[in-house]
């Protein structure tokens, strides 16, 4: 972790921001999450990898309760995740989410997309919201596209807007659910660079991805999932050079040699 973020969070440097305790979930007969225990510290960047169908996206989506869980506990910043209603909405505002398919609001301009949550959820006034939105859009490199509609932007630009939209809520943690999987290859980097920058700035991040390069360079920890379980957790260097489990070895041999 960078020294900056450690200093910034000096008071709460050691506390756990996201805690999952023996979380279980089924999709019908499929036991998609099996006794998941995972703790993410403030400022930590955790990359979740694994074969498709291993439950990594579902895991990511349970953290802001876009997926409900059957049993277990999820705590965000020490508070249990509310089941529904206003309390859940409030908590979701503190948890930023970036989707594989961007999901920008199609009937609103880029600028409106980034302003909406600030105005309707954070109740900030329009001027402030716009200023902040423009700053964030500049930061992710799409400031000049502010007045266009999402469909007029490339995938990479849309995904960067989606990141700005999430950041506009000043989230405590950012969830990335395969943020580059729907992108053309040449657009992947522009999104990864924004994420790298976020990581350097000390944002707490949970990233589900197939981008091993990003995992190596930005992650504090790699979580490897298979068949609904966390099979292995390690720092990236150790995981990629010396995986302990056979399942991880098998997975890595398939993706790293081509």
């Amino acid at each position: 972790m960078t020294e900056v973020s450690v200093a910034k969070d000096a008071v709460a440097a050691t506390d756990d921001l996201v805690v999952l305790k023996s979380v279980n979930k089924h999709f019908g007969a499929l036991h998609v999450l099996q006794d998941i225990d995972l703790t993410i510290a403030r400022g930590e960047v955790v990359v979740v990898i694994g074969p498709s169908g291993s439950g990594k996206s579902t895991l990511c989506r349970t953290i802001n309760r876009l997926e409900s869980i059957d049993s277990g506990d999820i705590l965000i910043d020490g508070k249990p995740l509310p089941a529904e209603g206003k309390a859940l909405a409030r908590l979701r505002a503190d948890v930023g989410m970036v989707f594989q398919s961007f999901n920008l609001f199609a009937h609103k301009t880029v600028l409106e997309n980034v302003m909406l949550g600030q105005i309707k959820v954070r109740k900030s006034d329009k001027k402030k919201a716009e200023e902040k939105a423009r700053n964030l859009l500049d930061r992710v490199g799409v400031g000049s596209q502010a007045d266009k509609y999402p469909a007029q932007l490339s995938g990479g630009q849309q995904q960067r807007v989606a990141i700005a939209r999430a950041l506009a809520m000043d989230p405590k943690v950012m969830l990335f659910d395969e943020p580059t999987s729907a992108l053309d290859p040449e657009m992947i980097n522009e999104v990864l660079e924004v994420m790298q920058q976020l990581a350097r700035d000390g944002m707490t991040m949970v990233v589900v991805t197939h981008e091993m390069g990003f995992a190596r360079s930005a992650a504090n920890r790699v979580v490897f999932m298979a068949d609904g379980r966390i099979v292995e957790e390690a720092v990236p260097d150790q995981f990629f050079s010396n995986p302990r489990s056979d399942r991880a070895k098998d997975f890595l041999s398939k993706i790293l040699h081509h």
Binding site: F102, N103, F105, A106, G117
Partner: peptide, 26 residues
């Protein structure tokens, strides 16, 4: 698309806000 409502919920909008601001206008 379902993702529109999910994204709206993810930024903390309530059910009625999701409906009024995102889903119904579309």
């Amino acid at each position: 698309p379902v993702g529109q409502a999910e994204a709206a919920r993810a930024i903390g909008l309530s059910f009625s806000q999701v409906l009024r601001l995102i889903v119904l206008p579309q």
